[in-house]
Design a protein around this nucleic acid. Structure first.
Lengths: 211, 211
DNA sequence: TTTTATATGTAACCTTTGTTACTGATATTA
DNA sequence: TAATATCAGTAACAAAGGTTACATATAAAA
């Protein structure tokens, strides 16, 4: 765990804080698809992402989903932080997009370290900053863009976090994360294929050039 | 300023912090319509709302707006906080919805107080929490609701923050804040009038029963 | 190989939202 | 009062996105 922690957070955290984290943090390794947080959960700890990707989802009244953003190495879940403070329930669902390693910090330490460590304060504020901005970008996309643009952005972003040009999802799964319908997504994907931006296959999509 | 500060923040801030605020804070009174923050601005201070309402807006590429949420007494602008940290530019526009009183805190104090005062830490975290949640609610509305529902929510919320059952806006102005078009809003408002939920007049709308 | 389940393609149609164009109503100013 | 600007109502149409229904393709299982 020491090595993982130092790799991801060694530069920003002071040594005393690293030691504290090693004392109280618990290391977890979860497989792709593992549900880390469910809507309504009371949060027991704060996750520090060491490797992998976690997708954060929102749900509507009917139970349909919407992808908010991805958490990557060095990120933490700000939603979780805010929930810790007030002991409120989670507003989001968090699912490992790929096999993921993380360190869980007990809630009580958060407040303590915020007073004690400048580097922790900076980390917490930066996390909030990043998350608010990602949420704004998502909101922009939903409020201002048409579905074809949103789809292209989705494919780009998914390709980026997974570090490959193959999107291993069905049209149905993509439709769910964009809060649309399968037929609409199939229709738009077909158009993207016709202008040679992607190649469609069963169960996966090959990205050719989405610039 | 002492009285205003104690009224709005006396319960949550310890006395030493209240004194610090009085030392370095500057009191401002701005009229309805006053632009407090513009997109791209570098933030010089953090606002503590003492009375009044501030609306926070986002803009698309074409320059059209979208209302994100309102700030009220006891609120601060989390967007501002995050901008302070990284010395980045503002992502949003903030305009006084009514005559508003606020206390501006210099950026440099933020970091200092976060280490020094527990009540300040709680306030900052709570603010982030509230803002993230408001942003989520806005996002829900845009992603999941149809325009008629969004319009009803808009009227309700506007009536709530302004503490009256008269909405003093033209259809054009409402359309802009909802990122829609005047004709669409007029059409939906007319439907609301037909089912006796509102009464339409030139330049204002009377809310009858939006439950 | 045959069967079965799942994924994709596509047409036809509907609803919501946005656009254009014009009318009449109301307020403001000359 | 007359002229002008602004606001609201509405029809007709267009576009985007969602729905239903069904055909076909492909992979996995029997």
């Amino acid at each position: 765990m020491i090595q993982e922690l130092k790799n991801s957070y060694g530069r920003q955290f002071e040594n005393a804080l690293i030691n504290d984290i090693l004392q109280v943090g618990t290391f977890r390794e979860v497989p792709e698809g593992y549900k880390l947080i469910e809507i309504g959960d009371y949060i027991k700890g704060m996750p520090l992402l060491v490797s992998g990707v976690v997708k954060v989802l929102r749900e509507d009244k009917e139970g349909d989903e919407l992808l908010l953003y991805y958490l990557e190495q060095g990120d933490t879940c700000s939603m979780t932080m805010t929930c810790c403070i007030g002991q409120t329930q989670s507003e989001i669902r968090a699912i490992a997009e790929v096999d993921t390693k993380l360190i869980m910090i007990p809630i009580r330490k958060m407040e303590e370290w915020t007073a004690k460590y400048k580097s922790w304060r900076n980390f917490v504020f930066e996390s909030y900053h990043n998350r608010l901005n990602e949420l704004l970008i998502t909101l922009d996309s939903i409020a201002f863009d048409r579905m074809d643009e949103r789809l292209v952005n989705y494919l780009k972003e998914k390709s980026r976090v997974n570090k490959e040009y193959i999107i291993r999802n069905t049209h149905q799964e993509i439709a769910q994360e964009l809060h649309s319908s399968r037929v609409v997504i199939s229709r738009l994907l077909k158009k993207l294929e016709q202008i040679d931006k992607i190649e469609l296959h069963r169960n996966y999509i090959k990205i050719l050039d989405l610039s």
